[in-house]
Every structure is written in structure tokens, then in C-alpha cells.
Computed example of a mutant assay.
Amino acid sequence: MSRMPGLTLPANLNSFLAKQREQADKLRAQHGIEPQPWYRITNQSSDEAEVLLYEDIGGWYGATADQFIADLRGVTAPNLRVRINSPGGSVFEGIAIANALRSHPANITIQVDGIAASIASVIAMAGDRIEMAPNTMMMVHEASGLCMGNAADMAEMEELLDLISDNIADAYASRAGGTREQWRERMRAETWYLPEDAVDAGLADEAIQVPKTGTPPASPEESSPEPDMHRAFDLTAYGYTGPQQATGLTEDIRALVGEEVAAALRAQVVVEPAPVEPEPVEQVVAAVPAEPAPPAPVDEDPAAEPLLDPWAAAVAQLMQPAPDPWAELTSHLTGTTASSSAATEAA
């Protein structure tokens, strides 16, 4: 693996750092670039503030540790969360930041959001609590740098880099336990840690877990009360109690249209009576009262005229011919003859 870029560390370190900052100021002025801090500090609430370290630590175009420390003094919240996603950078800028965090009165929680490598992992050791977000990584390695000069300069550079690596190993050992040499071995191997590995090595306190998908639902005894937001489409929250029965539906319609309209609707509906099975004959006969016996037949005279139907009798009166007026006037003229004839026939 390729090593992370380190800081060039010549023999005269103070002079080099001053020249580095001066050159950075000239480059920014030359290209019209305003200083862009590689961090951001925000007050999330009166109880907690947040620091984002999402770039290289220090650097040619970035702000230096003194600016970060000045802004950090303005944080008065009792809790401070430092979120790191940095590949590293300047060793001495990082050490200054770590010491500023250790001396701050707030309770410091370090949260690795992406990567905390090289000197960024040393800054992480300054937290009172260290958390690794899912799929993040932490990396430790030896200090590295560039040097130009003769053999004496190279030998001096070797001693300086070895001293810096011992100093970094002590930071890991102070936090995670172990010895300086044990951590130097891991640094020489350029060791990478996943969240669980960092916890096992003592470099972190917690590997934040994400709920797994596809897991079977918990039993009713184990499940917690469902939050209100999960019941957004639970119709019982709006008074729905399930499908209504037919009687309940009829009552609802009558309440809507009124009794008069409901009565009119019922009048339009013809309800056929349900078929009734015939009762046994014995029960029917017993239930029906006995009719009186018909009168005995009376001997009729064969010569007598048959009885007329009342309706026929009424009609017969209408069919009688009207009396002839001429016959009434002449009836007395024929009365004697008729009487003589009747007497003669009678004798």
C-alpha cells in the first residue's frame, strides 16, 4: 500500500513552519483565494456543539491550528462532538489540535464518519469517547517526510522521524493500552482497522450498528410500542372499526336521508312472502270451525215456476213492455164479452 502524504521535516523545524505559512499566504494572494478552513464549528444547541474535520489537517491552502484553537475557545456548550473524515496531514498541526481538545472543558465525543488516518487517528485519541460509524476505517502508520541535503542531514532526518513515530505510538498506547514497541510494529505494517477491529484494539469505544434488513419481526413481548409516525395509515386512529354489518349500514342510510324518504323507499319495494309449508290435515281441520249443516231439501212442485235470480228479476222488470194507451181506452168495451165468455167456460 502507498503511504499517506506526510510533512516535510527539515532540521530547523521552526524556521520551516514559518516559511510554509508565509508561502501559503503568498499563494492564496496570488490566486485570489480566500483562506478556506479545513474545519467547521457550529452550535447544534445550547447543550452541544459540533466540529467537522473533513479535509487534510493543515496544508498549504488551509488554515493553521492557531485559527482552529481560537475558534474552539468560543465553544461554551458542555458537550462537543468532533466528526472526522480526514486522511491526515501535518503532524504538528494535528498534535496541537489534539491537545486543544484535551484541554477543553467540554465532554468530547469523537465520531469517525469516513476515515481517520495518520495524524487524524491521533486527533481521535483526544476524545473522552470514540465512536466508529458503520463501514468507517482507522489507519496507523510511521511518520514520513522529505529531506534534501547531505548524509548528515539524512541521518538527522532519520532520528527526527523515529522520534515522531515514538511520540505517536505513545498516543495510541496511552489510549488503547500496550507498549510503545507494540504500536510501532503495527505502525510499520501500516495497519487498517474496521469499526469492530478498532474496538477490539482499544482505539474506539463503540462500533455504531445499523439495523439489518430482512430480519424477522420481534415477538409481541419483545416489540416496543409503535411510534405515532408509524401509525400514519392506521385507520383505527380515525375511528374506523372494520366492515359494518347490514343493520348498521341501514341505520346509517336512514340517518342520512331521513325517515320520510326511507319510508317512501320501503313502499317501493315489494317483499314476497316466504313460502309456508302446509300444516298437517288434522291440524287444519281442527283449526277451522265446523259449518252448519245445510237445510233439508224441500219438495218442490214440478209445476211451480223456478225461482229467479235477484239480478234476473230486476232486469226482467226493465224488459216488461210499456202499457198501450189505446188498449186502456178500449178495455171497457170488451169487458162484458170477456166476462160472458169466462162464465160460459166455467159452466
Results as ranks from 00 to 15, higher is better:
residue 11 A to Y: 13
residue 16 F to H: 09
residue 17 L to M: 10
residue 25 D to G: 01
residue 28 R to H: 14
residue 30 Q to E: 15
residue 30 Q to K: 15
residue 32 G to V: 02
residue 36 Q to D: 02
residue 40 R to I: 01
residue 41 I to D: 03
residue 49 A to M: 01
residue 54 Y to N: 15
residue 55 E to T: 08
residue 57 I to A: 02
residue 58 G to C: 01
residue 65 A to Y: 04
residue 68 F to D: 00
residue 69 I to Y: 04
residue 71 D to R: 04
residue 78 P to S: 10
residue 78 P to M: 11
residue 84 I to K: 00
residue 96 A to H: 10
residue 106 A to R: 06
residue 114 G to E: 07
residue 117 A to V: 09
residue 119 I to A: 13
residue 125 M to T: 15
residue 128 D to W: 05
residue 129 R to L: 05
residue 132 M to N: 02
residue 136 T to W: 00
residue 145 G to T: 13
residue 147 C to W: 06
residue 150 N to I: 08
residue 150 N to E: 10
residue 154 M to S: 14
residue 154 M to P: 10
residue 154 M to C: 14
residue 155 A to T: 10
residue 159 E to F: 09
residue 164 I to W: 09
residue 167 N to K: 13
residue 168 I to Q: 00
residue 178 G to W: 01
residue 179 T to D: 07
residue 187 M to Q: 06
residue 190 E to H: 10
residue 191 T to D: 01
residue 191 T to N: 00
residue 192 W to I: 05
residue 200 D to Q: 15
residue 207 A to L: 11
residue 207 A to C: 11
residue 208 I to W: 04
residue 211 P to A: 14
residue 224 S to F: 03
residue 227 P to D: 12
residue 229 M to K: 09
residue 239 G to D: 00
residue 240 Y to K: 11
residue 243 P to N: 07
residue 251 E to W: 07
residue 255 A to H: 12
residue 257 V to G: 01
residue 262 A to T: 11
residue 277 E to G: 02
residue 281 V to T: 08
residue 281 V to H: 03
residue 283 Q to D: 08
residue 285 V to P: 05
residue 288 V to I: 06
residue 292 P to K: 01
residue 294 P to F: 06
residue 308 L to R: 14
residue 312 A to I: 11
residue 314 A to H: 06
residue 316 A to C: 07
residue 317 Q to I: 09
residue 318 L to R: 01
residue 322 A to L: 12
residue 322 A to S: 11
residue 327 A to Q: 15
residue 328 E to D: 12
residue 333 L to Y: 11
residue 335 G to R: 09
residue 340 S to I: 15
residue 344 T to M: 08
